[in-house]
Amino acid sequence: MQGIDVKNDPVEAKRRIGYIPELAELYDVLTPSEFLHFMGSLYGLEADVCESRIGKMMTAFGLFPNIHQRMDTFSKGMKQKVLLASGLIHNPDIIILDEPLSGLDANSVIIVKDLISKLAKDGKTIFYCSHMMDVVEKVSDRIILIDNGSVVADGSFEALKQQEGNRSLEQIFARLTAKDNLGQAADDLINAFGN
């Protein structure tokens, strides 16, 4: 990875990665400012650099008024925004996002999607894991479909469409991964009332 042997020097590799986990898992007795300062210092950022980035990022996310509030009162979306900021604060080259849109309100979804495409334009590598096929379809240059741990498809959306016929990604995924007919499952559900 970027000339770094991940096995030998995992720390150096981590320095270039921004990881944003799915579950809004953070130390919620801290305030966003404290948490992000902590994160920044783990990436070796100077306190004043942190301070200005935190201010700007939180303002952009509309969380600036809450910056000194403890996060235990935050909604899922607010926590998600803080997590996004924590993964981006050190300006990483590689960003790993796991369901980054979960819990976000409609406007924030637009901001984040926009952010992702702008980061990609900046030359950053983004791993975007999601079950929301319609979003994946729009934001991805290359799509890897994984079923039970094994790769079942790998390529751009266009290439996948050519391979599997002109369908949406959701349909392609269903075709490749579903063992039983999904329509049958719905029928079974309907039939469950039949006694």
Binding site: V11, A13, R15, Y19, P21, L23, E25, Y27, L42, G44
Partner: peptide, 15 residues
């Protein structure tokens, strides 16, 4: 022993 450490600290460049 905070199990959240695994998620929060370990992905960071800390040895």
């Amino acid at each position: 022993i905070d199990i959240r450490d695994t998620n929060i600290i370990l992905p960071k460049p800390v040895n």
